[in-house]
Design a protein around this nucleic acid. Sequence first.
RNA 1: GUGGCCGUGGUGUAGCGGUUAGCACUACGGAUUGUGAUUCCGUCAGCGAGGGUUCGAUUCCCUUCGGCCACCCCA
Length: 437
Amino acid sequence: MSNSPQQLAKASKATIQAVRGMNDLLPKDAPLWQFLEDVTREVFEQYGYCLMRTPIVEPTPLYVRSLGEVTDVVEKEMYSFEDGLSGEKLTLRPEATAGLVRAAIEHNLLYDGPKRIWTWGPMFRHERPQKGRYRQFHQFGVEALGFAGPDVDAEQITMLARLWKRLGFSNIELQINSIGDLAARKAHRDALVVYFEAHQDQLDEDAKRRLYTNPLRTLDSKNPKMQDLANAAPKLADYLGEAERAHFDGVKSRLDAAGVVYQVNPRLVRGFDYYNRTVFEFIGRGNDWELAIAGGGRYDGLVEKMGGKPAPSCGFGIGVERVIMLLQETRQPSSSMLDAYVVYAAEAEAQACGIAEQLRDCGLAVAVHGAADGGIGSFKSQMKKADGSGARFAIILGSDELATGKISLKNLADGEQALATLDEAILLLQSISSPST
RNA sequence: GUGGCCGUGGUGUAGCGGUUAGCACUACGGAUUGUGAUUCCGUCAGCGAGGGUUCGAUUCCCUUCGGCCACCCCA
């Protein structure tokens, strides 16, 4: 019904836009993303985490089983559809953990012991878009599968703290909490429901709606009228057993030892059902916003629940777009990676391309001038382009250079220009070329 | 998903029933022989889309698409 011939005809005239909440990464923003990807990979590798990748599309039941049937994500935010060709029920992944766990089980990844892994890519959730919240967004996902002790919890939190430091962030807040094991959570939840039922008359609309679905959220209510009620409610901490408390203490003492500053937030919870014990969240603050930039926790039962052998685990996700927002506020745009920009007269066009190829053979980054209209333009306009490209040097090929068999090499930073042979130019360019190329 | 605010060249904006839709930045071209700045001159480029009201709509109304904010939730 949404694609009547009339509507299609109309649509065919209008320009086609990107799907709502799904953004293009434009060239001007790419360097920042690449910087973040590079630094993140380096930090993860420092801790022995290995890259792996899973498909963007998974069978829908994977998420229903792992995240929990009554979670918001599963109930109303998943891009689920039926493959018209096979009839399979599929879902665009809303998070990374379930797919990684599925793959770990499918390939028996844990047969010779626990594994530290990470991944990265787009995730999809059908929410109303806002700043820092998109329908296609990107996450780094990190999982330590098969580790039972509090050491990996602390390791991952410490790793994130190191990442923020490497990225130059200072205004990051860390909140941690223990939500206990399943039994403790269930006992606490039941007590909460009983408590709220006994105070039905004081509940606001949200609280009533969430009474049986997500009573924990009511503890976090922003409604001032609910504060007293929430404060007097049963506390999760009182339901934690000895082992759970010891685990949490283990995490905290390791963070203390590593010098990682944190705040215990007894109301911190996660949106997915599979979490237990340690949960944590890093809050980033920009000029006019405050959002979680990374969050995670322990999920001791998930691997077993998904059909694998029991493998207590811990993991987290980083919101790439949100980290990029912070980077945009704290970092200057990075400079071009070009070593040279070739400017040439019409009769030197063939030589320009040839010389550029020879320079690239030597590992240099070289752009050859090209104009929108297919011509090449004056030397003046070519030099403007050379300047705008951010290249360190301009290589000038005109009739004079052709006649002498040399090239002119102009340092765009200080304006120095000299004639040189190609070999001399290569040596000079290599000596100032950035080592990463 | 609910409620609210908002869509003017690539960017930031002025105008708000009849205007050649103004300004700034950017881009492009030029200011004597083959050279990046500044300055000066010039040029390109816009009312998100679709209906309606009207003699006439960028301006008013509706729908839609998109952005942002709050809620919800979360990275």
